[in-house]
Nucleic acid binder design. Structure first.
Lengths: 230, 230
DNA sequence: TCTACTGGCGAACGGCGTTCAGCGCAACGT
DNA sequence: ACGTTGCGCTGAACGCCGTTCGCCAGTAGA
């Protein structure tokens, strides 16, 4: 007597389940592995089944992004430390975004309207106000900071894809790339690219984190000049 | 007697021609319209013919990016105006990137190694040095500025895609979006999102250009503290 | 003149997001 | 208890995409 091969015990598909699986795929294998078909297969059905719960892939990415935002703890406001708190929140968001490979790609042009993303926005905006930044400037600055951390995470994720494509591990890939680029820069004609040839070492030097920190520092510390309380 | 229908008079395909057509397509219709098939059709052949001249689509995008960089005029160095010159160069790059819809997507994680991109890097790096910025800091800051203008152009291009998708023109789309977002923010529960609800107007206000300028100003003016000559 | 090579090409492969007509099953009205 | 209705779900298909493969023709060199 044959059993109806692999009768799926699954009864209902939920939006939350789709989002959860999507997040898992993107965390473990990167955004390139995330397709409607892949999520559907993971659930045990065909791709069309998802469209009853999610309008399209874009909406799925937005939902996933907001779900990811829920992972960020919202710190309690400590007004004197407003600048440091902004940086901490930015670093934490950057980190979570990198861990989720690159939901950055979904975040980069979406006005954050999900409940969890709004909690983060509200928190950082509160820090701006605590620092005496005028609301208008604070709103724009927050926008710029989020754009910055998103872009950096995006850049990072593309590198990661290239590492995976090359087959080598991260350290050797990056150091190889650095060595190659350094050699290339040093060999450039000094009459056309004088500064690049001269300072090749400085140009290729520095870790990803150091560069991220510099940008963050410039963006946040520069707010001083707008601070009413300083 | 029948003529061999539409015998293509084209003899040879060149790399430069492929790049040129790619740039035109991306300028006129956006990056989503750019496919190997599209370029091939434009030339009058099948997609496989391109692979003798270009390794793959990624390489094509890199070549297109460098070709686009050639459009940027390199200003003569004027040391006392170093900060203003950096901003001018950044604005010009931003503008050219926006005009080419979003080669930003190709630029965001590529170390610029093409001859034209290197000319720009060399110029901006020279401005950093003219401002007395230590080479290491200058190199990183340049990296951050390029990342910033690329990310902003990318964001802009995604909005443009959405505008095109919605069918309305740019102004009505953006003002509609602003109005909707404003209404949404104002209606949020003030106990959970106090700042957002209160300052909804500030949050949705401001043009794209104003926001871009703020970020650029923070990044560049913040360099003062590293300037040895100031 | 014969040959080796190379740039060009049609067809195909495996993937993608999305749509559509229909299926079975649970819930509901009677 | 029994139609009936509605909806969650599904397989198949459409039209794209990047890329590969095997073949062809024309040319350059021997």
């Amino acid at each position: 007597m044959t059993w109806p091969a692999e009768r799926p015990p699954r009864k209902t598909i939920t939006r939350a389940e789709i989002v959860r699986i999507g997040l898992r795929v993107v965390r473990e294998e990167g955004i390139d592995a995330l397709s409607m078909r892949r999520v559907a297969t993971e659930i045990g059905t065909g791709p069309s089944s998802l469209y009853a719960h999610v309008a399209n892939k874009d909406e799925l990415l937005r939902l996933m992004f907001d779900e990811m935002c829920a992972l960020l703890p919202i710190p309690e406001l400590d007004p004197p430390r407003w600048k440091e708190q902004i940086k901490e929140l930015a670093r934490a968001g950057h980190q979570v975004m990198i861990e989720h490979n690159d939901l950055a790609r979904a975040a980069i042009a979406t006005i954050p309207t999900g409940p969890n993303a709004l909690r983060i926005s509200n928190a950082m905006f509160g820090m701006m106000l605590a620092g005496g930044i005028p609301p208008r400037i604070g709103a724009w600055a927050m926008d710029r900071i989020f754009l910055y951390i998103t872009a950096d995470a995006y850049e990072y994720s593309i590198w990661r894809d290239q590492v995976k494509g090359a087959g080598s591990d991260k350290e050797t890939f990056l150091s190889d790339l650095g060595r190659e680029t350094l050699a290339y820069f040093e060999q450039l004609p000094a009459d056309i690219y004088p500064h690049i040839a001269t300072y090749a070492t400085a140009l290729v030097g520095g870790s990803v984190d150091e560069r991220f920190e510099l940008g963050l520092e410039l963006l946040v510390d520069g707010l001083d000049k707008y601070s009413g309380v300083s």
